[in-house]
Nucleic acid binder design. Structure first.
Lengths: 256, 256
DNA sequence: CCATTTATGCTTGTTTATGCTCATATTATA
DNA sequence: TATAATATGAGCATAAACAAGCATAAATGG
């Protein structure tokens, strides 16, 4: 077995189990422990992994790289359910604005049922997925491409969206807190969302239940900005009241 | 068996097995191990594979390949070679404009070797692939997303690029004819390319040899607009003269 | 037609990868 | 804390792989 091939294999094993001992790896790859150690030293040096006494664990760096892929996969059932509820509000021939979140991306396959839609987005993967739908005209904002969030951001992005007139905006967020603040983990996406709520007739906020009681770095919107809050699970009475008080209609998978 | 043909075969073998030893490859392709090693050195330099003591492993550019199955591109070896020539002209800290073609996409893995680059593009897959490179700041134009060509087009796209100042523009085309016309199969990409040649200091035209003697729907540029024409195979004397007469420098894999 | 270049194969000295042993360092446990 | 158990790093030997230089044959160019 070749050197690099073995290192690939080590990475694969670590991805599965999160960590592994030198002994385990040596046994699995039919080489001596000395060889494994030499591999680990090299891989550690390249920040592919982190060595520990006795073995190695995945480096946080590697985890970060696939951050979006992971986000995309997690809570997929919840996301599908939320999108199933949201799609009922959309009408044929509408114009939509979509954010770049994985939650909102889950609605894309459902858009095929409409005769025609026009969609603007600042999500680069979102745009790519949308472009495969025959019945949708897709527009993407211009600007700087940010890998972590798969977003196109910056002044041109704001300017572009400021000229769009949409029927619906579908937004997600990183957290909702008990002050009715809808928060995001980036200044720029927060700013973009403030532009978007000015440009769409109805604002649909799609949030799975894990977002409640979380406050992130930047307050993007307030609950009163949203026309609908769509979630898969009945929120606490406190939040249900808060939502109602802000003139926002709560839609959820469970009976309220 | 020709050089490039053999390298294609090596790639095919590696795609099947993920890795191969020098000995295996030599036996499979009926050449000496020295020849295989020389191929592997070259292919490693183009990031097609990773060399390792004893053989080679498929380049595990997970980040890059997630965006697009680069390996499924037609005429990949030719494109790699063209890009291997083009990369030599690029300098650290440059600003580039890339079109949305698959030919130009093949240069993306090679950009990792630079310390820093700024890249603007109207290709949506191109932008997504680029965004995985840590050393590159990526900008995408805004506009309508066209699925067929993976391009972002329209007035905003033109406007965006009209404000960019770049050191290099890397463009491909659908056809070059004996009148020195560089032609495209869409009015809008042709128009965009006319904007781009105004905004970049050096225009690099990347065309595999199949593009010669073909005229498509729209004349985007003329040979005199290009500073370099980069191709993998020596063009006919007629074309070589035409290129030279238009003040365009011909760079090709074969000796002129 | 001859001069050059290019691709390939062969030979040889050098480098690399690996496993083994043993002294040292780290962790676990009594 | 002291002691046992385990992991580690360094040095060494060996076999395999490698780079470089040279020679030959084919392709290319004038």
């Amino acid at each position: 077995m070749l050197n690099l091939e073995r290192q690939d294999e080590i990475l694969a094993i670590l991805s599965k189990n999160r960590s592994a001992t030198v002994g385990e790896l040596a046994k699995a790859l039919y080489v001596s422990e000395a060889t494994i150690r030499r591999d680990l030293i090299e891989m550690d040096h390249l920040s592919m992994i982190r060595r520990t006494h006795g073995g190695a664990v995945l480096s946080r760096n590697t985890a970060l790289e696939s951050a979006f892929a992971v986000r995309e996969m997690t809570r997929l059932t919840q996301k599908r359910m939320i999108c199933g509820l949201a799609i009922e509000l959309i009408r044929d021939n509408s114009t939509l604005i979509l954010d770049s979140s994985s939650t909102v991306m889950a609605i894309i396959p459902l858009l095929q049922r409409f005769h025609h839609l026009t969609v603007a987005t600042y999500g680069i993967r979102t745009a790519l997925m949308l472009s495969n739908l025959k019945n949708v005209d897709v527009y993407i904002v211009g600007g700087r491409v940010e890998n972590f969030s798969n977003s196109v951001l910056g002044v041109p992005a704001n300017d572009f969206l400021a000229t769009v007139n949409a029927d619906f905006a579908l937004l997600s967020c990183s957290g909702i807190n008990s002050h009715g603040e809808i928060t995001d983990d980036s200044l720029e996406t927060a700013q973009l969302k403030r532009v978007i709520v000015q440009r769409a007739d109805k604002i649909l906020l799609l949030c799975d239940s894990s977002k409640f009681d979380r406050t992130m770095m930047n307050t993007a919107l307030r609950l009163e900005n949203a026309d609908y809050l769509i979630t898969e699970k009945k929120p606490s009475v406190e939040y249900a009241n808060l939502i109602q008080k802000n003139g926002c209609q709560l839609i959820c998978g469970e009976r309220i």
